[in-house]
């Protein structure tokens, strides 16, 4: 609680204090957010020995050796393909299931509507890592360890509730009158969904898709628990395994691998950043 003072310093502080605080916080935000990524990028271009000496922040010579080494790893294309396949399936299937469910919740009044909607929320408060113990046991019994199916099943199950909750909000905010006029024009449910609801809720569909993509691309605990063959690993799993599999720590390779696993998703995010940020800020996405 600052008391009104008339000294010139106090006046200066009162005028500038908030501005300085804002700029300080903003600078901190930028440094805090960017440093780990920029450091990984810089280190990935360095010589491994140069990293050990920790003399300068910038590479002496910008080398691509680390990237060449990563791309020529015997399994790299396999891990990349695994990640892509699992991510595509675990984005498209949950989206379809969620679009149907969200349309049902947003447009119909029916018995148990609230209970069913709540049931869709519960999975979001279950810590996913806690499920790895029983899932490993159950999936072993079903003989599904080291298969794509087991990754599809678990990834889809964890993405559907997220996508549904985002889309219920977006569908619900579209005025019913627009759909009713489409009904009068003879459009049935599928046509209304395709030609009215989806185009109008497009930012929501994009956001849901990006967040499903994010979950699947970055998922680690399920693949750790349900896969143990080298050729079934995804990129995050292999990144984790690098720690043990490299005899002498080649930090440049390690950083290059990290950048390559992070980059594809960041590019998707940068392309669709506006829609995703707006959706989260507008409160349409809640954990």
């Amino acid at each position: 609680m600052r008391v009104q003072e008339s000294g010139p310093m106090a006046l200066l502080f009162q005028r500038l204090g908030p501005k300085v605080l804002i700029w300080f916080t903003l600078t901190f935000l930028v440094i805090w957010t960017a440093t780990p990524i920029i450091w990984a990028i810089l280190s990935s271009f360095k010589d491994p020995l140069e990293i050990y000496e920790s003399k300068s922040l910038l590479p002496e010579v910008w080398r691509l050796d680390a990237y060449r080494k990563v791309l020529s790893m015997p399994g790299f294309s396999t891990w990349l393909m695994n990640s892509v396949i699992v991510t595509v399936v675990a984005t498209i299937v949950p989206l379809i299931l969620a679009i149907l469910a969200a349309y049902g919740f947003a447009r119909y009044a029916f018995k148990f509507r609230h209970v069913l909607l709540l049931l869709y929320l519960i999975p979001r408060i279950i810590p996913r890592v806690s499920l790895i113990v029983p899932l490993n046991d159950l999936m072993s019994d079903l003989g599904l360890i080291n298969t794509y199916s087991v990754l599809f099943i678990t990834y889809i199950a964890s993405a559907v509730p997220l996508a549904t909750w985002i889309l219920v909000g977006f569908f619900g905010s579209i005025p019913k009158e627009i759909e009713e006029s489409a009904t009068l024009d003879g459009a049935n449910m599928w046509n209304r969904l395709r030609h009215v609801m989806l185009p109008m809720a497009w930012p929501g569909v994009v956001t849901a898709a990006v967040l499903c993509l994010r979950e699947a691309w970055n998922e680690f605990s399920f693949v750790l628990a349900l896969v143990n063959q080298t050729d079934m690993r995804t990129l995050p799993y292999q990144l984790y395994m690098l720690k043990d599999s490299m005899g002498i720590q080649d930090y440049a390779v390690y950083n290059a691998f990290t950048i390559l696993t992070v980059l594809p998703l960041l590019l998707v995010y940068l392309l669709l950043e506006r829609k995703v940020v707006d959706s989260i800020v507008s409160g349409a996405v809640k954990s």
Binding site: L29, N218, L239, V262, L266, L270
Partner: peptide, 17 residues
């Protein structure tokens, strides 16, 4: 846009960084 970037970095990559 920048502030949300870490949300898209996987837990493993975060740890490695």
């Amino acid at each position: 846009g920048l502030s949300l970037v870490p949300y898209f970095v996987s837990g493993i990559a975060t740890a490695v960084m």
